[in-house]
Design a protein around this nucleic acid. Structure first.
Lengths: 233, 233
DNA sequence: AGTCTACTTTGATATTTCTCAATGCAGCCT
DNA sequence: AGGCTGCATTGAGAAATATCAAAGTAGACT
């Protein structure tokens, strides 16, 4: 893991981050240490239960937020993408609620939590930005409850793949960072079952995989899988 | 459905609501119409997709927030209890994300959304209270993702029953408002399967049911069901 | 090239869960 | 009492999913 002080003024994420809309002046006066962090695939950023001292913005790469159960199972609670804020568990929460693990080589931006807290009190724009992200996170979580609670394995997987690939449109460069096991832990399925369904999708020509590149060939048909016969969802 | 103007100053929910901590003066100047509403079991308060004009505080009774799928299934996204805020879908969201249905005869307090919005800008205490509720909702949603994604039917049901009954400690007066179908739609199971597991729990003496009264007889043993052999969770 | 290692695939079987159909039960109405 | 209605239960069989075990594959390292 390598670390260096960040130059927020020229950050490529600036307008996607929670500091979007701030003036250069405000940005210079953030009053906190902001660090760039580069980590490798598999690195654990923090553990569930750890005291939370930092929040992070995902600049490049992928992160999974995982909860481990007493029964040995692991559940991926959230997958993060470019621009997402994480590690910020709420105003009064001082412990991380998940374990955060890099899915690929990843660049982060690290913010001090207590400074961020003060900042959000001082600058309404920052507060609103954080609030908006929480709102989105809640909405996503509720959508996932619906997926897990009322769809079958193939439908869940189909929905996920279509959403994934529409979020990362046609970028051949980015290899698919999730293992079959990751997919299983995200969708509540066994690794083997995921593998079988993927194979079936490939057999039907809905999906193509080469090296680490995953390509959705027929999003429309995949979606009918996801929602029953011919329904939009 | 009956409606009347509310007397916030003497509201029994005052200190549990998002207006907790406000002075009498502030409370008088809310600057919005606040209505008490009484509704009967099964009443739909709003539909998914409706334009959101009001938020509600649940004062007495029970509410389920439901999403309906194209495939015919319904998923209960959230169960609300005494003191919960709902119908407030976020700062910029103008449509309800769920259908809200009364599980029993219920008293609500209805707030105008745009006024609430302004209020939260003016009064930090209100804003923080709303934020805190969102935070809790997100945490609950994530816990449910874990339940749905990595536990078996009997474990999910056991966890739910223990939590339910610890939230409503030993009040014989309140009948259990959920049908087997509700339980199924909440836990992602078929009605029949819920029924069978409940029967098994009763057979083992973990649970007792008489008329509408549901009693958890052995929370500890029920929890070992929920988490595998002897584990806390 | 050879060997490791981690990930994936496949098959066989066991378990879990759903579906369908029938019946039971209790409250409510007349 | 009789009948109606909505919910709960039970059983039997089918479908979905997990588990266990064995091979297959590809990349990383020497």
């Amino acid at each position: 893991m390598s670390t260096s002080h960040s130059d927020c003024l020229h950050c490529s994420m600036r307008e996607r981050s929670i500091f979007a809309g701030l003036s250069n002046e405000d940005l210079c006066q953030l009053g906190m240490d902001v660090h760039d962090i580069h980590i490798r695939t598999g690195t654990v950023i923090y553990h569930e239960g750890d005291t939370a001292s930092y929040a992070y913005t995902l600049r490049q790469g992928g992160i999974k937020l995982v909860k481990n159960l007493a029964n040995g199972h692991a559940q991926i609670v959230r997958l993060l993408r470019h621009g997402d804020l994480f590690g910020f568990e709420g105003l009064r929460n001082d412990r991380h609620r998940h374990t955060a693990i890099a899915l690929s080589d990843t660049d982060l931006c690290r913010l001090e939590l207590h400074a961020l807290d003060q900042l959000s009190q001082r600058l309404p724009a920052v507060r609103e930005a954080i609030f908006a992200r929480w709102q989105q996170a809640l909405q996503d979580a509720e959508d996932r409850i619906v997926e897990l609670g009322s769809k079958k394995a193939d439908a869940r997987l189909a929905t996920f793949l279509v959403q994934w690939c529409s979020a990362y449109p046609a970028q051949r460069e980015a290899p698919f960072p999730l293992t079959r096991q990751d997919l299983g832990e995200f969708l509540g399925l066994s690794t083997e079952h995921v593998s079988r369904i993927m194979a079936e999708f490939k057999r039907q020509g809905l999906l193509h995989e080469h090296k680490n590149q995953l390509e959705v060939r027929d999003p429309r048909k995949l979606l009918t899988y996801a929602c029953g016969e011919g329904n939009a969802c």
